[in-house]
Amino acid sequence: MQMFHNSTSTVLIAVLKRDLVIGLRHRSELFNPLVFFFIVVTMFVLALGPYETTLRQVAPAVIWVAALLASTLSLDMMFHSDLDDGSLEQFLLSPHPLIIIVVAKILAHWLLTAAPLIVAALFLGLMVYLPQTAIMPLLLTLLLGTPVLSLVGAVLAALTVGLRGSGILLTLLILPLYIPVLIFSVATVDNAAKGLAITGELYFLGAILVLAATLAPLATTSSLRIRLG
């Protein structure tokens, strides 16, 4: 009888594909954060009035704060349904390293939640009179910043999975951790709008991303073991 041990990349792709298929079949969960993002930005525009100078000044902050809030909405679901239906137990009992599965899940979460948000942010940028010169920097900060949100979010989602009222607790715990990303991202877009150099801030964002990508999967793995053990 021939036994076949799947390679690490096979497992990664299989779990990634699984989560993407589930996400795409759960349209509402996919669209709710996106709609929320649109509504929050629109509310600001309605509240501040259609004045180009005012909107231009607050545009980077509004877009980034709305993106942060929208991305926390979907965090709770990252491990919750897997815990409820017993899939998480099967992940933990797999002979493959748990960290591979965790990395695949974080990647799937980013693709499902952040990628649509990035596209939407470019349109919303135009709506709030963000200067042409700041659109590209906005895209760059979102590309560097949103993976950090999924990575750090995964650690806390794993730590709070299965707790009563974990949704609100998770939001309260996670938002302070997003502050460094918020500060450097908004500063980048602000500087770009004013025609100043942005490389320094982008390097900081890149460094935060590398740090999160290195440590967050390990921390998520340990958190899951603690929660289920």
Binding site: M3, V11, A14, R18, V21
Partner: peptide, 16 residues
């Protein structure tokens, strides 16, 4: 079938 496929990817499967 998809459920079994993912279970197979996570395990050491019997190819026969």
């Amino acid at each position: 079938l998809e459920n079994l496929t993912i279970a197979g990817a996570l395990a050491v499967t019997n190819q026969s």
